[in-house]
Write a protein that binds this DNA or RNA. Structure first.
Length: 549
RNA sequence: GCGCCCGUAGCUCAAUCGGAUAGAGCAUCAGCCUUCUAAGCUGAGGGUUAAUGGUUCGAUUCCAUUCGGGCGUACCA
């Protein structure tokens, strides 16, 4: 298939050699403005000193474009040049979609590149919270998007099995265990409050009875409660991720960074570079005001334990050393400042951080219709991601979290997501897919002869048919655009247009019509192509493709 | 206080590198089921893009200030 933008761009440059800058095209919002538009005359008029409209006229008169591709060229507004692409061009795209099927839309943009996406990375101290869902679902879709543009993607989970929070977990489990025998046993002030800790304690009691009473004094005893809590929590976390169809390739243990000496090496590097200094028993990292930091940060506490920053830095250095072409992190806005500290540390240790990109998403507010759902992380009233998935289903969960741009606050209406009605935006897309499947079921039983890919695309000529073809043809550039900005919600916006155009087509154009077999055959294949685009889009955003609803 | 992000229709949100008359869904109102799934289609109303100023052929988009909201601002992660 010819790249039509490149074609016009080359033709313009050949006609007016003085124009040596990049010529860009937009898809006009208004159909009256054609299929492609360029503002080159507006941009170039500054350099040439000519009036934009005069320049646009000059360009369009010198152009000699293939009528089979471009049916019409117009000058409009302050000096836009609008191009009307021929219907035949779009009819040919139909064959392209049918030939490439589930690969249509995949690009070779990053064909030989590798990407590492690290996300979720929740501590094994508690089950995943509903708010985690935004990052989790975003990451799932972004990983898919990257693969669609050719990246070989490694999905990675940074597993925080070291540090202070694991000790708190051990203390919490132990206290709940002891409370089984003595309800008065004190629970740690800043312990983990959730019911799940009691479940862990009960499991331990079921296996070991009271054999572990008062064993918390020695390291071995502490280790037992820590490991028990960690394993239980991580099992729950992985189970939740499985419900969403998420499988990580690598679980990177924080503790390995201690075992293999990376943390120690990094400390030495900071010290020998004069970037770290000791004060009040702690080790501090010098932070540069020029990079927007107002004070230095502690990297090793006076207790001898590193703060979270240091292993995070060592971890990112490890990822850089693995040689990825793209290293992606996804964090909530509550980490908006801390990742900058980590990257600053990595940079000042002498590493190139240009391959690292960080996606920050804003927080989520959950609502049940008009009532807001309270979610305190400390109390038992927590709303877990597991519960959300059980309440509304995996598809609605994935869809609602990915539906909006990451960089804006998300209002998540659980009542709406749960509703099985036309108010729920998930079903609008899936219904279009199911409807096409229904047409094919009908065709298979009643009109099997009409199902053939030997069709004459010329018979497709109603406004609805051509319009649908135009929308379908945009899929590859939508994928590239969405992937380049790591914004999967753009795919949903696009799929809404696909579904809408299909429903309009369906309403006005009878697909299966024995009186007009050639037309029926072509329309069936148009429906098939629509089904392919919907399926490919669903695969990217990570929802299922139901054959019936 | 300082830093980052956000503010678009009654509500939830789109809007291509700065492009033409700012678009969808829900809600409201009016139509469309003897024909492939009405979880659908067609139409109507609804806007000083928080405010003010600036940059230019052109600003929701860039800059400045103000107002409003979120998140940070730990020897927690």
């Amino acid at each position: 298939m010819i790249d039509i933008k490149k074609y016009i761009s080359n033709e313009i440059k050949n006609s007016i050699p003085e124009i040596n800058q990049e010529i860009t095209f937009d898809n006009p919002k208004d159909q009256k403005h054609g299929d492609l538009t360029t503002n080159i005359a507006l941009v170039y008029s500054k350099l040439s000193g000519k009036k934009p409209r005069d320049l646009a006229l000059e360009i369009s008169e010198k152009l000699n474009l293939d009528k089979n591709l471009i049916s019409k060229t117009e000058i409009a507004g302050p000096g836009f040049i609008n191009f009307f692409i021929s219907d035949d061009y779009y009819r040919n795209i139909l064959n392209d979609i049918l030939a490439n099927k589930n690969n249509f839309g995949k690009s070779t943009l990053n064909e030989n590149n590798t990407a590492n996406l690290e996300w979720v990375s929740a501590n094994p101290t508690k089950p995943l919270h509903a708010g985690h869902g935004r990052q989790i679902c975003l990451g799932k879709a972004i990983a898919n998007l990257l693969e669609w543009t050719g990246y070989k993607v490694t999905r990675e989970y940074y597993y925080n099995d070291a540090g202070n929070q694991m000790n708190k977990l051990a203390e919490s489990v132990y206290a709940r265990y002891m409370q089984i025998f003595n309800p008065e046993f004190p629970f740690p002030e800043d312990g983990y409050q959730g019911e799940y800790i009691k479940n862990i304690a009960q499991l331990i009691n079921g296996m070991r009875k009271d054999a572990l009473k008062n064993t918390f004094k020695n390291e071995e005893g502490k280790e037992f409660f820590k490991t028990a809590g960690e394993k239980y929590n991580f099992k729950i976390i992985r189970n939740t991720l499985n419900k969403l169809g998420i499988n990580h390739d690598i679980f990177f243990n924080e503790s390995d960074l201690y075992k293999n000496g990376d943390i120690e090496k990094l400390i030495e590097k900071f010290k020998s570079n004069g970037l770290a200094y000791e004060k009040e028993g702690a080790l501090w990292l010098k932070m540069d005001e020029a990079d927007g930091f107002d004070k230095d940060k502690v990297i090793v506490k006076s207790t001898g334990e590193p703060t979270y920053r240091l292993p995070d830095m060592a971890y990112h250095i490890d990822k850089i050393n693995r040689g990825y072409d793209l290293i992606l992190d996804i964090f909530g806005s509550d980490h908006g400042d801390t990742y900058k500290e980590v990257l600053y540390g990595v940079k000042s240790a002498g590493y190139d951080i240009s391959k690292i990109k960080v996606i920050i998403h804003q927080m989520v507010t959950f609502k049940m219709g008009n009532e807001s759902v309270k979610m305190s992380g400390r109390s038992d009233t927590s709303y877990y991601l597991d519960e959300l998935i059980d309440d509304i289903g995996a598809d609605a969960t994935q869809f609602f979290f990915v539906m909006r741009g990451a960089n804006t606050h998300l209002d998540f209406d659980i009542k709406l997501a749960k509703e099985q009605s036309d108010k729920n935006p998930v079903y609008y897309l899936q219904y279009a897919y199911a409807r096409i499947c229904g047409i094919f079921r009908n065709a298979e039983t009643n009109f099997p002869d009409l199902i053939t890919d030997n069709i004459d695309t010329k018979v497709l000529k109603t406004d609805e048919e051509i319009n649908l073809l135009k929308t379908l043809s945009r899929f590859p550039e939508e994928v590239e655009d969405s992937a380049s900005t790591f914004e999967p919600h753009k795919i949903i916006t696009y799929l809404n247009k696909v579904a809408s155009d299909f429903h309009t087509f369906y309403h006005n154009n009878r697909v299966l019509d024995v009186e007009q077999p050639e037309l029926s055959k072509a329309r069936l294949q148009l429906a098939q192509a629509t089904k392919t685009i919907l399926k490919n889009g669903f695969d990217i955003i990570g929802i299922s493709s139901p054959e019936r609803m």
